[in-house]
Amino acid sequence: MQEAQTYWFDVGPVTAIPLRGARTVKTPRREIAVFRTATNDVFALENKCPHKGGPLSEGIVHGHKVACPLHNWIIDLESGGATGADQGCARKFPVKIERGRIYLDMGMAAQA
């Protein structure tokens, strides 16, 4: 097993994101979209649609998916992958929730 370094960053309370909504986290290299679903699950993807780079954080969240605001590709929040006939993948970041706060693993972001 490869031992990946993890760097958990506290990015704020879960309640700061509306249900079925998203907010962004800006980092020096990229912008990350953090989604909260209707049932309080939280996911993080790079805020860049695999199609033409649309800001996924602005899309409509339904179930564990988000519809890109530019051309309506449907991206799976769990994997970052495009669904249906479309091909491509948005980068995914590990998230954990502790005591109602969201932690993003930036160890992933640090590589590559």
Binding site: Q5, V11, A16, R23, P28, R29, A110
Partner: peptide
């Protein structure tokens, strides 16, 4: 207001 502000801005990230 949350629509217009990032949730967080991380200026320094390990190894970045």
């Amino acid at each position: 207001l949350h629509e217009f502000m990032p949730l967080a801005v991380l200026t320094r990230i390990a190894a970045e």
